[in-house]
């Protein structure tokens, strides 16, 4: 049996924040009005077919036209009134969604890349800036302003459970506000076609209570954990001496390239490959060895490592909690 029910963590119909709830309300209003209009109009049409079939003669006298004109005029009047109601509801909701932000609010910036999301949280000092990827953490009940831009092509950030979408446009910065009211894990996906792996450009959104969020943020501000075991040390060496360090950065080491996602705390992330596979040892090894096999066209090259080397590298990366 095919499951007909979709998951609820990437859905505009299961709002988890006030903006999405407002939109869902508006959608409900529109759907009700639209259904009534549909049933009435289509009903009249079906009746007209039945009558038209029964009629002996077509009737096109002026008298009929005058009578019909009243009906059509009335229907048109009702249509216009209904449209005005909808327009009004839409504008009211639009106002509720628009935000004017205050300097005290929490700001996050999200930068689109082909095909992953760079997420950064401001810090008091330069070395306190949190750089992470494909995972957006939000404190519950707090309004967060997300600043959006893109490094390459146009992407679109869409967290349906929290709000509508906003495009990430190179050379422009735009903002969108989110407020998660229910803790939980939601999923976002790029909504503007951005090339080969547009379909596999996901973002995990973690809405958690303020204390938990603060704990997470504090942990993310730390530099990376130093390798302890032999395998971890060997893994770090491999990381630094092969192509890994050419694109990725790990805070606290010499790896500082910004082409690919920051890996300082990759071990703490829930998913790999932009919300596509879960972060397990097997998946990580598969991704490192042959990323193109999971996401054809991805910019990360395959790596020819011996099984030992690969194992050590993965052990090291996993230790970066």
């Amino acid at each position: 049996m095919i499951p007909l029910l979709a998951a609820t963590y990437q859905s505009a119909l299961h709002p988890a924040g006030k903006y999405a709830a407002e939109i869902k309300w508006l959608l409900t209003v529109f759907t009700i009005v639209a259904s009534v209009v549909f049933v009435l109009t289509f009903g009249f049409f079906v009746v007209s077919l039945i009558r038209g079939r029964r009629n002996r003669m077509p009737d096109a006298t002026d008298e009929t036209a005058r009578r019909s004109a009243k009906w059509v005029g009335g229907a048109l009047g009702v249509t216009i009134v209904a449209l005005f109601i909808l327009l009004f509801a839409s504008v009211v909701t639009g106002r509720a969604l628009s935000h004017i932000y205050e300097p005290t609010e929490r700001h996050v910036s999200v930068i689109g890349h082909q095909w992953w999301w760079e997420v950064s949280y401001d810090g008091p000092q330069a070395d306190q800036i949190v750089l992470t990827a494909n995972e957006l953490h939000l404190p519950v009940g707090e309004r967060v302003i997300v600043h959006l831009t893109s490094r390459d092509v146009i992407h679109s950030l869409w967290i349906p459970n929290l709000n509508g979408k906003r495009d990430l446009i190179p050379g422009k910065e735009s903002t969108i506000a989110f407020q998660a009211d229910k803790p939980g894990i939601y999923r976002a996906q790029c909504a503007e076609f951005c090339g080969m792996q547009h379909a596999m450009m996901g973002l995990v959104v973690v809405a958690e209570p303020k204390e938990k969020f603060d704990g997470w943020l504090a942990a993310q501000r730390m530099p990376s954990r130093s390798p302890v075991s032999i395998d971890e040390q060997k893994g770090q060496q491999i990381f630094m001496n092969t192509s890994c360090a050419m694109c990725h950065s790990i805070k606290g080491t010499s790896a500082g390239a910004r082409t690919g996602p920051d890996l300082t705390h990759i071990g703490s992330r829930r998913t790999l490959a932009a919300g596509v596979i879960s972060n397990t040892r097997g998946n990580l090894a598969g991704w490192v060895a042959d990323a193109g096999g999971i996401k054809p066209g991805v910019l990360m090259p395959p790596n020819s490592l011996t099984p030992d080397e690969l194992n050590a590298l993965v052990v090291y990366l996993e230790s970066l909690k």
Partner: peptide
């Protein structure tokens, strides 16, 4: 779109 690891060999 999918390079063989051999192509990536050093």
């Amino acid at each position: 779109l999918r390079r063989s690891p051999a192509a990536a060999a050093r």
